[in-house]
């Protein structure tokens, strides 16, 4: 059973192909905020490298967010259309969850990513015997508030994150960039594989991106 996984939630985009839980191929590239040109060609190369065709894919995993809105939509559109076209299951995975999954850590993990406007998208996770599980859902907030709210010994995971002043030294900051050997799509693929084995399936037609933030127009119109 092959799972094809897509992550376009960050500055670095990646795809991975898992066969019965083992990585067959994975690719990562710097997106330059344009996922459209590279994503489908990279999927094509990934399948070709494994000597298979789209018809050999058993399920698609995708990081639904949070992250840059357009990037998320490129990945989620591609995943939805693959599942619809090939009539295979879709497995949605949180982009922060996928990054937390890459670490063999005990204790609390805060997975975060830059949300612009001086804020982070963040969520809390912990590894137990089932794997990395979510303690709090993805939210957006200012880094000092986030760090004050989480366990003092929590490990912070996030691409190119800088801890705000006063917090350095209190937390372990781990880089989840591919330079450190981690490819987010592999985290997506593992979580998707786990969900597939548990019999979980998402409905492609209903799958949205996980934006966390409303659009600017909606925020102006209806302040919460």
């Amino acid at each position: 059973m092959r799972v094809l996984a897509i992550d376009t939630s960050g500055v670095l985009a990646s795809v991975a192909l898992l066969r019965d839980g083992e990585v067959e191929d994975a690719r990562v590239w710097r997106s330059h905020s344009n996922h459209t040109t590279r994503l489908v060609p990279e999927l094509q190369r990934t399948l070709a490298a494994a000597g298979c065709t789209p018809a050999d894919v058993g399920a698609v995993g995708v990081a639904t967010g949070p992250g840059a809105f357009s990037g998320l939509r490129v990945g989620v559109t591609t995943a939805k259309l693959l599942c619809w076209s090939l009539d295979i299951p879709l497995l949605a995975v949180g982009s922060l969850h996928a990054r937390a999954e890459l670490y063999q850590l005990n204790g609390e993990i805060v997975s975060a990513t830059d949300a612009g406007r001086g804020e982070w998208y963040w969520a809390r996770y912990r590894r137990d015997d089932r794997g990395v599980i979510e303690l709090s859902p993805p939210a957006v907030g200012s880094p000092p508030v986030i760090l004050a709210a989480c366990n003092a010994t929590a490990a912070i995971v996030g691409e190119s994150l800088r801890l705000p002043e006063g917090f350095a030294g209190k937390h372990v900051l781990l880089d989840s960039s591919p330079q450190a050997g981690y490819v987010a799509a592999i985290g997506v693929a593992r979580l998707a594989w786990r969900r597939w084995k548990n019999g979980e399936r998402d409905v492609p037609a209903l799958q949205q991106a996980l934006y966390v933030r409303r659009s600017a127009a909606e925020e102006r119109k209806r302040p919460s």
């Binding site: 459209t36 789209p54 490129v74 591609t78 259309l81 693959l82």
Partner: peptide, 11 residues
């Protein structure tokens, strides 16, 4: 565009 590309690729 991504929908069309994915359909062209998968089919």
């Amino acid at each position: 565009v991504n929908a069309a590309k994915t359909l062209a690729f998968s089919r």
